[in-house]
Computed example of a mutant assay.
Amino acid sequence: MLPRGEDGKQHRGAAADEEEATATAASLNDLCATAGDAGSPVPALAPFPRVAVWAVAALLAAGLGLGALVLAVVHRSALLVVSVLLSAAVVAFLLWNAAAAASGRALRRFVDGLPASSLRAAADGQLVKITGIVSCGDVSLISSYEKVENCVYTSTILRKCGRWGSEVANPKNCCSKWKLTHAERFAADFYITDAKSGKIALVTAGHQSRVVPLINENLLVTTSRGTELSSTLKCWLEERNISSEESQLIRLEEGYVSEGMRLNVIGILSKKNGDLMILPPPEPISTGTCVVT
């Protein structure tokens, strides 16, 4: 995936082109690690620190052991019953939080419930949610498969059927295991025009920015056994050295944010030197169910 070029650009020599390509690549934010597993439309977030989970598990185990000891010595099961019920409640709570964090429900509820801010009224250093129209910055992107230009965020994901030992008659069956085999996800700095105040702010989503995208990919291609792959898909696979065997069950999904689209952005507002910028939060933010870092 490459940033778009400028029409009518003059040739300035190999050295200048190489320097510009290096600078452009350094400005992009490679988010491939946030592609998640085959069932997660957004990156999975850890709802609790691992140390806290192990500490709670140790306390529950101690309570169950004490209840069993009391039952064996004095033949009273009240403490054991209370320990079992308490353990079941805590485990259910942990599982519910883990499921909500992995599916992105908690994060989406947090974003939807946060009131929209105004760039005019918000203070410097305040956590803001800005809704407005997106425009490209110095670098823009082209989506990998559909070749949509003037994008500030692109995500292309390839999945293969990973259900071992059986064939899937319907490739759209949700019970099938779709394994993530290839991901291309990039972001670049862009501008957003606040719908409330009309002011424009630079969103630093580029290189070394911690970005959590909540953009779902659209399903573009689904193949079944014996399906003949299109020339476009074959070319896309060959460019990435991915096997294009027609017997494989694959799904290709792509999402993007292009210039002119409406977007919600959450970050820390900076008003230094008269320039409006939205920066990634320096510390983790609790959504009430999980922690966003």
Rank of each mutant, 00 (worst) to 15 (best):
L86M: 13
L86T: 15
L86N: 13
L86S: 10
S87D: 06
S87V: 07
A88I: 14
A88S: 09
A88P: 06
A89C: 04
V90Q: 00
V90P: 00
V90W: 00
V91D: 00
A92L: 04
A92W: 04
A92D: 00
A92H: 05
F93L: 15
F93Q: 10
F93E: 11
L94E: 07
L94G: 07
L94W: 07
L94N: 06
L95H: 08
L95E: 04
W96Y: 12
W96L: 11
W96C: 09
W96E: 06
W96V: 13
W96F: 07
N97C: 14
N97I: 07
A98F: 03
A99P: 00
A99E: 14
A99F: 14
A99K: 12
A99G: 06
A100F: 02
A100C: 08
A100M: 12
A100V: 07
A101K: 02
A101E: 01
A102D: 13
A102H: 12
S103T: 13
S103W: 03
R105K: 15
R105H: 12
A106T: 04
L107F: 10
L107T: 11
L107D: 05
R108Q: 11
R108N: 10
R109D: 14
R109C: 09
F110N: 01
V111H: 05
V111N: 00
D112C: 09
D112T: 10
D112A: 15
G113A: 11
G113E: 15
G113C: 08
G113L: 08
L114Q: 02
L114S: 03
P115D: 04
P115K: 12
P115A: 06
P115T: 06
P115S: 02
A116D: 09
A116C: 13
A116K: 15
S117I: 13
S118F: 02
L119R: 13
L119N: 11
L119T: 15
R120C: 06
R120S: 12
A121I: 14
A121K: 11
A122K: 00
A122Y: 00
A122P: 09
A123Q: 13
A123F: 04
A123S: 13
A123Y: 00
D124I: 11
D124R: 05
D124A: 07
D124Q: 10
D124S: 06
G125Y: 05
Q126K: 13
Q126V: 11
Q126G: 13
L127G: 02
L127E: 08
V128R: 05
K129I: 15
K129D: 08
K129W: 14
